[in-house]
């Protein structure tokens, strides 16, 4: 899977209240959630973001609550990939479970400039910074998580594995 888009850069400890503030958690509609994505930190984000864009962030992205509305809001506004130096654990598992691609990279965060365009080949783990003409390699997911991601998320993996009791 190849993802190409403009990056939006954020700092450390971006929390789920910033990604989708609690007052907007009264819906399960992804598009509706997407309309308020990143509202808690940048209320103009949704006017700038385009389909297939990429969020690049610092340490501990997605810390705070367990709300799966956070990765769903990110998907809902069109963002196709999140790259961070590190992720908070519940956010990380939520991304795996709902099928939002995420990558961990220190180098990409440190070298990225606003409005850079990245092209990510997820199956190869290869990320090209087209603007700066640089190539980065990121490590693969552990095999169980790769299986869930390839299935298209946890519910699809559930169906494939016949957990029926």
């Amino acid at each position: 899977m190849i993802i190409k888009g403009k990056i939006h850069k954020f700092g450390d400890n971006i929390n789920t209240d910033e990604i989708i503030p609690a007052p907007y958690l009264v819906t399960t509609d992804i598009k509706e959630l997407g309309k308020h994505c990143m509202y808690g930190i940048d209320s103009s984000f949704i006017t700038k973001v385009r389909e297939s864009d990429i969020i690049v962030a610092g340490r501990n992205f997605g810390c705070g609550s367990s709300r799966e509305h956070a990765p769903l809001a990110i998907q809902g506004c069109g963002v196709a990939l999140v790259i961070a130096q590190s992720f908070a654990r519940i956010f990380y598992r939520n991304c795996v479970n709902v099928g939002l691609p995420i990558l961990i990279s220190d180098e990409i965060y440190k070298s990225i400039k606003p409005d850079d365009v990245l092209e990510a080949d997820l199956s190869k783990g290869e990320i090209k910074n087209i603007t700066q003409n640089k190539i980065f390699q990121v490590s693969a997911f552990p095999s169980l998580l790769q299986e869930i991601i390839e299935a298209g998320g946890l519910m699809k993996w559930y169906l494939l594995n016949k957990f029926e009791t």
């Binding site: 367990s66 799966e68 519940i90 479970n97 709902v98 998320g153 946890l154 519910m155 559930y158």
Partner: peptide, 13 residues
């Protein structure tokens, strides 16, 4: 703490 899809999975399996 986990997410909603984890909860759905746990309720089903």
């Amino acid at each position: 703490g986990v997410g909603s899809t984890d909860l759905a999975f746990a309720m089903l399996s």
